[in-house]
């Protein structure tokens, strides 16, 4: 899937560089979970048993308000199957990933679930219905720690884009995200300075965060969405700064 994103980058850079309003046709990988409007129709399959929205209550199945981030089998007043209660005790939370697996094949995730539903084979249907349902859980604008409302696009770069990455401007642009916390003058003040850090050490450290070997949640998050080439560009930029 990466090439689609690459092409998006390439296109942006081209349009920006040349300033031409050439009509562009390309497919972009969208960071949204899915199309919530289309998901509302898919949800018709669920309404016989599950309520969602203002004043939703338990029916044949539990209500689905606030399901994202909720422990499995934890809606008060609902009697769950042994299977779902067990998964909950084992620590399973409903996330984009677990819900997707459950919707694809309920019995694969929870063997003795009482939800009599064959599953949604089509990934797009699952994405869409999950996008629809996500609207009824906490909003990240108000509760920043709540479950994500999108999926990070995998970052990968084509040859075209690599040419841009060599541009110091690219490293400098990427560095904007770092300088909110790390001072560009290199001062240490609770947050380590990263100016003039040897290139190789920088690269190794970023990959360690990316692989979640180094334990810092902010850095794991920041490095987690940098491609190898972006890490290299940043390392080069900060390595040369004085």
């Amino acid at each position: 899937m990466n090439w689609k994103h690459d092409r998006f980058w390439g296109v942006l850079a081209t349009v920006a560089g040349v300033g031409l309003a050439t009509p562009v046709v390309a497919e972009q990988q969208d960071a949204r979970i899915g199309d919530a409007e289309a998901g509302k129709e898919v949800y018709d399959l669920c309404v016989g048993c599950h309520e969602v929205g203002p004043d939703a209550g338990n029916g044949i199945g539990p209500h689905l308000n606030g399901i994202f981030g909720r422990r499995a089998g934890s809606v008060e007043g609902f009697r769950y199957s042994k299977g779902l209660s067990r998964e909950g005790r084992l620590g399973m939370d409903w996330t984009l990933e677990t819900l997707d697996a459950y919707l694809e094949n309920p019995k694969a995730l929870v063997s003795d679930t009482r939800m009599s539903f064959d599953g949604l084979e089509d990934k797009a249907d699952r994405d869409n219905v999950l996008a629809y349902l996500r609207q009824f859980s906490d909003s990240p604008q108000n509760i920043p720690e709540s479950a994500p409302t999108g999926r990070a696009r995998e970052v990968g770069l084509s040859q075209e884009t690599l040419a841009i990455a060599g541009d110091p401007e690219f490293g400098e642009y990427l560095s904007n995200e770092c300088t909110t916390c790390h001072r560009i003058d290199g001062t240490y003040d609770g947050i380590p300075g990263i100016v003039g850090w040897p290139e190789e050490d920088f690269v190794i450290a970023m990959h360690a965060y990316k692989r979640k070997i180094r334990p810092h949640p902010v850095m794991q998050m920041m490095a987690g969405r940098l491609s190898d080439e972006e890490i290299a560009a940043l390392a080069a930029y900060f390595g040369d700064l004085e």
Binding site: E145, S146, P148, T149, G150, V218, M221
Partner: peptide, 17 residues
Amino acid sequence: GASYEATDEKIVSVSSF
């Protein structure tokens, strides 16, 4: 904290801690 991406409709959150 969280990281975010732009979609045509809105900025979405893609990971949080």
